[in-house]
Design a protein around this nucleic acid. Structure first.
Length: 315
DNA sequence: AAGTACCTCAACCGCATTGGG
DNA sequence: GCCCAATGCGGTTGAGGTACT
């Protein structure tokens, strides 16, 4: 790949941006949009490479950027999503309006990671460090094969799959029971909204990011050909029926563009905004977070230490 | 008050992915 | 189907700020 670095041109400025440069960039984008980042600096009269302009805009100058310290809720969200997604900062950022992936990444590395370490958890997997004692077999027992791999992404995949299967089974059981006496789907949803937290999450863009993981990559990590089947295949039916929940704060239209085929289905008690889906996730009762229990062992994921400490000054 | 250690975060780097020709 | 430019993303760096001795 002999592609030339984007900033190879001589004479391009690097390092911190001056207020004047910020001003030029903001004014140009407000007036013309960013268009092609590559050509933007030239058009705007900046001695920067396009990449640098994009970064400056997305991480600092964008008008919807939220500044200031992370709230306890945001911290909680980051930890929860990191436990599920790993270092997918952009995916995590999409769940925190106004926060950038860079900011979240920095916050994780400087605060949250250390906090988990202090609690004796592996920040990569959120599991207690002991390799032999991590049988983690999450409650429900789906985790057997899943936890045999210490690789974070495999673990995450397996956790997803295990929890998903459990949720599917539960949902289908409840449907059978409930719909034998009721025909109103909306009433059903209202009657037991918590029964399918995981399915909702799975069908949000968060779950989507996992469904997109190339099977080959998963296979490569699994090595021994673990039982953990690829969610992409095993969840096809469910995903097809309810993938329409996929949206994001970055704009429904963008999500639509990304998943045009999934929008035909409008059968959706599940078809809520991802915001509400994710809210359900965030409100997930600790006891129902069975698929995390194996990872955190005896540590409640959001113990007092964890949540309270967020209001304490970091060491 | 000065020197040192530690922390934070904006910015850079390079690889991966995407999309157009 | 291939090639290459453009963009996105995650890891890392280092300057500046703050706390500590």
């Amino acid at each position: 790949m002999g592609r030339a670095p984007c900033c190879e041109k001589q004479g391009l400025k690097k390092g911190p941006w001056s207020p004047e440069e910020d001003e030029i960039l903001v004014q140009y984008i407000n007036k013309n949009g960013h268009g092609s980042w590559r050509s933007l600096p030239k058009l705007a009269g900046l001695l920067r490479c396009g990449k640098s302009c994009r970064l400056r805009w997305t991480n600092y100058l964008r008008p919807d950027i939220k500044r200031g310290p992370f709230t306890p809720d945001e911290e909680k969200t980051i930890i929860q999503f990191h436990g599920i997604l790993g270092n997918r900062w952009s995916s995590i950022a999409s769940q925190l309006p106004g926060r950038t992936d860079n900011e979240i990444k920095n916050f994780w590395n400087t605060h949250l990671k250390k906090r988990l370490v202090r609690m004796g958890l592996d920040p990569a997997t959120h599991a207690p460090p002991s390799p032999s004692s991590a049988p983690a077999a999450a409650a429900g027992g789906g985790g057997g094969g899943a936890t045999s791999s210490s690789l974070p992404s495999t673990r995450h995949m397996a956790q997803w799959e295990s929890a998903r299967l459990e949720a599917e089974a539960r949902l289908s059981r409840e449907s059978l029971l409930f719909f034998s006496t009721q025909s109103d789907a909306a009433a059903a949803a209202a009657a037991k909204p918590e029964s399918d937290y995981f399915l909702r999450m799975w069908n949000s863009d968060v779950g989507e990011s996992f469904r997109k993981i190339p099977a080959a990559a998963v296979k490569a990590e699994e090595g021994e050909g673990e039982a953990a089947s690829s969610p992409a295949t095993s969840s096809t039916a469910m995903a097809a029926t309810a993938a329409s929940t996929v949206t994001s704060e970055r704009g429904g239209s963008e999500a639509e563009a990304a998943h045009p085929e999934s929008d035909s289905s409008s059968s959706n008690e599940m078809d809520e905004s991802s915001e509400s889906s994710l809210q359900l996730l965030l409100d997930f009762p600790a006891d129902d977070m069975g698929f995390f229990q194996g990872q955190v062992g005896n540590f409640p994921l959001f113990s007092d230490e964890l949540t309270v400490s967020s209001s304490i000054k970091y060491e």
